[in-house]
């Protein structure tokens, strides 16, 4: 039996948490070498976003991507289970690879005024845990703090966590097939979400 700190967190939301129980390492943290590669993958992703290389960023996702950021509501404690929006409800993001590509094309149009001149962003990624989900799939949780500075003094801070389903490709690389983003916000304290997370 795996030690307690190696089991998948019980409080994480979403079907991404479903693990293949027939795979004996399911739920276990990956070893140091793989953990390092996963971490570098996430840091490189942050670099792509902060460099504004959105089209390259899109390549970290698989074709069947589900990219989702539910709303979060204040609920009475006894109804706390409803505090994270359900699939099929209004959301900050509810995207496929195509719809992300569509958003990215807009930035490349040269006429997306809300990002012209562009914002400066810094995606800080931490608290990465990578667990086995199946033979060639990982479940990776991470935390982010994204700082945006726009025009002269406009600043926004987006805090949140992500739960990713990550496929290990034949060449040992990674592809994300599902990303769930939980912003630590009720009323979003920013005028828009014009970067990605």
């Amino acid at each position: 039996m795996a030690p307690p700190n190696n089991t998948a967190p019980a409080d994480a939301a979403g079907s991404a948490e479903a693990v293949d129980t027939s795979f004996e390492q399911s739920g276990e943290l990956v070893d140091a070498e793989l953990a390092y590669r996963v971490q570098q993958f996430y840091f490189l992703e942050a670099e792509l976003l902060d460099d504004g290389r959105y089209a390259d960023w899109l390549d970290i996702f698989d074709d069947d991507l589900f990219y989702w950021a539910p709303l979060r509501t204040n609920r009475l404690r006894r109804q706390a289970a409803l505090s994270i929006g359900a699939e099929g409800e209004a959301a900050y993001f509810d995207e496929t690879r195509d719809s992300l590509a569509w958003r990215i094309r807009r930035y490349d149009s040269g006429m997306a005024w809300a990002e012209d001149p562009p914002s400066r962003t810094r995606h800080l990624i931490s608290n990465i845990t990578a667990r086995w989900k199946s033979q060639n799939e990982l479940l990776v949780r991470s935390a982010f703090l994204v700082y945006r500075n726009r025009l002269q003094t406009e600043t926004d801070l987006y805090s949140g966590g992500r739960t990713d389903q990550v496929r290990i490709t034949d060449d040992g690389g990674f592809r994300i097939s599902r990303r769930e983003i939980l912003f630590d916000a009720n009323v979003l304290q920013a005028k828009n979400l014009s970067t990605f997370f």
């Binding site: 209004a90 900050y92 997306a112 828009n192 979400l193």
Partner: peptide
């Protein structure tokens, strides 16, 4: 719903430009 939240709303591609103005 999807068309709505992708065009209008906090991440909406139309909404962002209105808010900026």
């Amino acid at each position: 719903r999807l068309y709505n939240l992708r065009t209008f709303g906090p991440s909406g591609i139309f909404e962002a430009d209105d808010g900026e103005n």
